[in-house]
Design a protein around this nucleic acid. Structure first.
Length: 213
DNA sequence: GGTCCTTTGAAGGGC
DNA sequence: GCCCTTCAAAGGACC
C-alpha cells in the first residue's frame, strides 16, 4: 500500500486521539473468516459467504473526508484518495471541506473491499447497488452501529467546522436561486461563480448558465 | 479532463 | 411539513 505524507496539512489534531472504529470484527450475522467468492459467492449461492473486512481507522475515514488531515504520515489507499487529491490540486491550496459521511456511506466504505470480483467487474455503480441491497437486509441493530458512528462524525465535523454548511459545496442551487449566491471557491463572494455543470433528469444541462458570473 | 452511473441519508431552500 | 435538489464514496465507461 502506498503511503501519502500529509504532515504539512493544517492545524487541528483532533482525530489523532480517536480509537479505531469498533465495528464489524464482532458482527454476528456473518462468518468472521474470509470466504471464497466474497459477495459474488453470496450472490451465486444465495447464502452469506462473507469476507470480513479489517476494521477501518479514523485515519482512513478522515482521508475520505478531508485530505488536509493534519499529523504524521498515514497508510492510505492511493485509489481512495485520488479524487480528493485531484480536487485539492484543482482548488490550488484552498481547503475544501467535505460533507461528513452518512451511515450508508460508512457501510459502503467498510464493505466495498468485500465485494467479489464478479460484482466489482461491473463497476462501482453495480457495487453500490449491491451494497444498497445489502444495507437494507441488515438488522436495525447492525445498522445502528453505522448510524451512531455517522452521528458522532457529524457532531465532530460540526465541532471542527462550526461555520461550515452543506450549501458551501453546492454547485447549482446557490447559483440558480439567488443572484448573490456563493460556492466552494468563493464562499463569501457577492457574485455567483459557477464551478460545475451537471445533467438533470431530463438530460438537459444545468449548472453553468450565461450571466452567472 | 470532466461527467455519469448507482446507492442511502443528511441538509437546506422553496412553497 | 413536504418536496426537491445536492453531495458524500468509488472507479470504470464514455464523450
Amino acid at each position: 500500500m502506498d503511503r501519502i505524507d500529509l504532515s504539512s496539512a493544517r492545524e487541528s489534531a483532533i482525530y489523532d486521539q480517536l480509537p479505531p472504529l469498533p465495528f464489524l470484527p464482532t458482527w454476528p450475522e456473518f462468518p468472521t473468516q474470509p470466504q471464497p467468492g466474497g459477495y459474488d459467492g453470496f450472490l451465486s449461492q444465495g447464502a452469506a459467504p462473507y469476507t470480513m473486512a479489517a476494521p477501518i481507522t479514523y485515519d482512513e475515514l478522515q482521508c475520505q473526508q478531508d485530505t488536509t488531515y493534519p499529523g504524521p504520515s498515514y497508510t492510505l489507499s492511493v485509489l481512495s484518495c485520488r479524487k480528493q487529491k485531484k480536487r485539492r490540486q484543482k482548488e490550488e491550496n484552498e481547503i475544501y471541506i467535505t460533507k461528513p459521511p452518512n451511515a450508508f456511506m460508512l457501510f459502503m466504505k467498510e464493505q466495498r473491499p468485500n465485494v467479489g470480483p464478479l460484482v466489482r467487474s461491473k463497476g462501482s455503480a453495480a457495487v453500490n447497488a449491491f451494497l444498497g441491497q445489502k444495507w437494507k437486509s441488515l438488522s436495525e441493530q447492525a445498522q445502528a452501529k453505522y448510524y451512531d458512528e455517522a452521528e458522532r462524525l457529524r457532531l465532530l465535523h460540526k465541532q471542527q467546522h462550526p461555520e461550515w454548511s452543506n450549501r458551501e459545496n453546492y454547485v447549482r442551487m446557490t447559483c440558480s436561486h439567488t443572484s448573490l449566491g456563493f460556492n466552494r471557491r468563493h464562499p463569501t463572494a457577492s457574485v455567483c461563480f459557477c464551478v460545475g455543470q451537471k445533467d438533470d433528469h431530463k438530460g438537459q444541462k444545468k449548472g453553468c448558465q450565461k450571466g452567472w458570473r
